[in-house]
Each structure stands twice: as C-alpha cells, then as structure tokens.
Design a protein around this nucleic acid. Structure first.
Lengths: 260, 260
DNA sequence: TCTGGGGAAATGTCCGAACATTTTAACGAG
DNA sequence: CTCGTTAAAATGTTCGGACATTTCCCCAGA
C-alpha cells in the first residue's frame, strides 16, 4: 500500500533549515536585524530554534546564497541586504561574450594620441577619464575586408604602451591589458545608444552620410575597481544588433515570498 | 607562543572538500565523467576518497554552485557542463529593471488588432509569433506629456483580452499578463538595434523625419518557456540610452584554476 | 604609548549516524 | 502485455560531536 494512507498532507511543509532561514529573513526585513549589524551567533541560533548546528548553518547558507548576509570567519554573520539577490541574471561566461565580434575580424590602428589632442571628445565617456589618457582609434574589419565597426579606445596613461603591441590584432584590448599589466577585470559596464554616422567615420565604414548607428560604450574596472579602459564602438545599424538573455536564476523568488 | 612553531606551511593546503571537488572537476574535464552522465554516487565517492559523506556532499555542492553538475534526488548527480558558471553577471533584481522607464510615464493605447491586420510586420520579431497574435500599439509619454517611446506589443492570442484593461497604465504589460493569466516569467531576451524614425512614428514622437532611434525587442517566456509576449519599443536616440552593468560574481575563477 | 600574548567568540572543516523522500527498475498478479 | 506493488539506490534532511582557524579585545610588559 502507498504510505501515508489517511494523513493527507497536501501542503508539504518546508524543511527545518528553510523555516529557519525564512524566520531570519523576516527578522531582517522587519528591522530586528538591520543591515550592517551582525546576526546572532550560531550557538545562540541553535538555542533559539532548538536545532542542531548543521541545520542552522544550512539556513545561514541559504541567506548567504540569496545575498542577504555575508559570513565572516571569526567575526560573525553580517547582514548586507534586505532584498534577495537578483532573480534574473544574464549569463556571461567570459567578458569576450560582451563583444559579438565575428571570429575572423581584425583590428587595425588608424590613429594614436592623447585624449587632449584632437576634437573627438565625446562627453558620454564621463567621469574617470581625463585629458592624460591615451587614445587609440581604429577600424575593425571582417575577414573579407568589409568594415564592421569604428573603435575609439581610451586607456589609463600608465597603460598607453599597449598601443605598440596592438597593431593588427584579433584579441580584445582589455584582455591584452589585463595580461600585460596584471589587471583583473572586476566590473564591466556597457551603455548603448543610437547615433548616426557622419564624416570620416561614414566614409571609413563605407556607408552613406547619416546612416543610423549603434554606439556601445564599454567601461572596464580592474583591481580595486579602478577604471582602466573605456572603449567606444560604432556600428552601422543594418549590420549589427546587440542581444541579451536573462534567465531566472538561483532559487525562484516565490520560495521565500511568504515571509514578508 | 604562536601555534605552528616550526612547521612553516606557507602554502596553506586546500580543505578536503575542495581537493575532492577539484579532483572530480579534473575527471569531468578529462572525459572520465562526460557531460550527460552521472557522477559516481555519494557512497562510492566516500569509499574512493576515504572521507565522510558530509565532506563529499560539500564537494558536490561546490560543483553544483559552479554550474558543473546538477543534483537530482533519487537519480544521482548529473554532469551538465564542463565549464564553470559565468564569472560575470548582470544583476537584475526584478524584470522591471530591464525597463528604464521614468517613474511617472504613462502608456496610451493608439491601436489594437492582430498581427495579420496591418503592414507593420517587422521580420525581426521572428519565430514564435504568427499572424494570430494580438497587436497593441501605443505611445509612452512622460508626466509632462512629452513622448518617450513608441511601443508595439504582440501577445499570445489567448492573452489578447489584456488590451481591455490596458488603457492608460503605468505598469509594464508583461507584469499585468503574468498576474492576470498566472504566467511566471522565466526568461527575457532583449535585442537592441539602431533604426531611424520615419512617417507616423516620427510625427508621434515629435522628432524630425529620419532621426536616429534605438529599438529594443523584448521577448518574454513564461511557464514551460513558452513565448507569450514580444514588445518592440523605439526611442529617439537623443533622449534614451540603455546601460548594463556586469560584475564578477560567485567564486572567482582563480579559485579552481589549478585543476586543469 | 605602543606592542605582543593570550583568551574568548565566531565561523570553517570534518567525522559519524539515522531517517526521509524521490526515482528507477524489477517483479508479480491479473 | 499491462498495471500496481515493492525493493533498491540515490540524494535530502537532521542530529551529535570534535577540532581548526580567524578575528577581536583585554591586559600585562617594555
């Protein structure tokens, strides 16, 4: 016979460690354990909930995975947020995927100098870049020679020498900088806007004057979250589009929705 | 006196469970446990590594967090990937953040119908949408009445009735659909390209003919990953840009880099 | 005042055991 | 051959204990 003959428990109750994590989350959201403070220690939680240390730690792990708390050996469990980690994420295994460059594209340097030199000083680049930064301009072309995008690269003065080894390369610049100067990319921000191609750029990309274009600003932060490179690429609209995919990640939000 | 007086162990060795997870990862990458197969059971791993079940499970948890394996109660531990989960993620706490609508913007329906009706049939929408889908067109304006973007919304025939309760609303359409029809948004893909505003759209948005624009295609998949809504918004270039931010997430890659 | 020792507190690692739940497959009755 | 039962296998949950490592703080000593 099937187990549980009469005691129909349609609503399967949550495991203990989930109940505990929910209880803690309630406490955090209700202000009992404000952000910035330490949660009660494991020993105290064991007493309070009357369960084993393993179970309590499992509960704390749930909160850690949610991005609610940060566990620090020797210090305690710090409350760092009242909201769960994002439910939707875009998966990028490698910064390379932020570039949708075709395989066999090549980059050719057309101009070098400093930010202060020319008149190409897009305000969009914004804070963190001053006139001492180096500027490298070039064209990225497909294997058959057809132009793909115009690129302006701004790098930290210390890294200006990267231009020498750039020449005619395939690999992304940020990757070469990271390798040469020991940077580790910690953060990348991408800004996308529309523009139109005029003058020398239109000519270089072999399109009509005023052709709509997609402009991408990419900012790379390395060790210590210091901005070290900004790249601006401009693509003719008809030959380029940028796509993102967001998936529901981690535990779905509904799992802990009741504890508000 | 400080502990460890003579035995200078500069290189602190990895915890057991990390050694085990690395060993398993090596096995996976070396083809000993190909993707799609099951890892040896916990009991067998306990024997093989001579440690406790807790430690083995901890090791498996590491692989699970990396996205290398998927644990299935009653079945086993499935190898699902040979590469670690993405090191960079864009954090989106709520699908709402994919819209950068200003707070006080309002949506006004200008036209309703079916996909097959008019001539507005962008090929870009692509697979999954046929001529039976409902189409809702409208304009989103800021509080001061200035137009912000043109919007075309395509929804599953079953959900066509959503148009009635749309009228003049602030909330995103996908949210209303999810609420009304019990969908749960599982996946959102965003595609961005440049265009130019012509004809009635340019007039509606009060810009010159041919003004560059940013076009965003958003596709929403719900329960069972079924596509249920596609929205196309077109923004005048000068008044809109789209930004993303990627951060290094989870364990940094270097933690397990030695085991190749 | 500054420094170092040492203890207390907190989390991390590891072991052992037991039972629960789910899945799969074998098996037997019809 | 089909359907339901059952048993085995696998992971999930929970308890208990022990020691290691890190951090913080107090306090004695220079």
């Amino acid at each position: 016979m099937s187990p549980n003959p009469l005691n129909v428990k349609t609503k399967k109750e949550l495991p203990l460690y989930r109940q505990i994590s929910n209880a803690l989350l309630s406490g955090i959201r209700d202000g009992l354990f404000p952000v910035g403070t330490l949660l009660p220690g494991e020993l105290e939680l064991i007493e309070r909930f009357g369960s084993s240390r393993h179970t309590v730690r499992e509960a704390l792990r749930v909160l850690e995975d949610m991005g609610i708390v940060k566990r620090q050996r020797g210090r305690g469990t710090l409350v760092i947020s009242t909201e769960a980690r994002p439910a939707f994420v875009q998966a990028v295994r490698d910064p390379k995927e932020l570039f949708t460059y075709p395989e066999n594209s090549a980059f050719r340097v057309l101009a070098e100098g400093h930010v202060g030199d020319g008149d190409h000083w897009p305000v969009k680049i914004g804070e963190g870049v001053d006139e001492n930064w180096a500027r490298i301009a070039g064209l990225r072309t497909l294997h058959d020679g057809s132009p793909f995008c115009w690129t302006d690269i701004y790098v930290l003065p210390d890294y200006a020498s990267i231009a020498q080894q750039l020449g005619r390369t395939t690999r992304p610049v940020y990757e070469q900088i990271a390798e040469t100067f020991g940077e580790t990319v910690q953060r990348i921000s991408v800004e996308i806007c529309a523009g139109s191609l005029v003058g020398s750029r239109a000519k270089a990309l072999e399109v009509d004057e005023g052709t709509p274009s997609l402009v991408l600003y990419r900012r790379y932060c390395g060790n210590g979250n210091r901005l070290f490179e900004v790249s601006v690429t401009e693509h003719p609209a008809e030959s380029f589009s940028y796509s993102l995919e967001f998936n529901r990640g981690w535990q779905a939000a509904e799992h802990w929705s009741w504890s508000k």
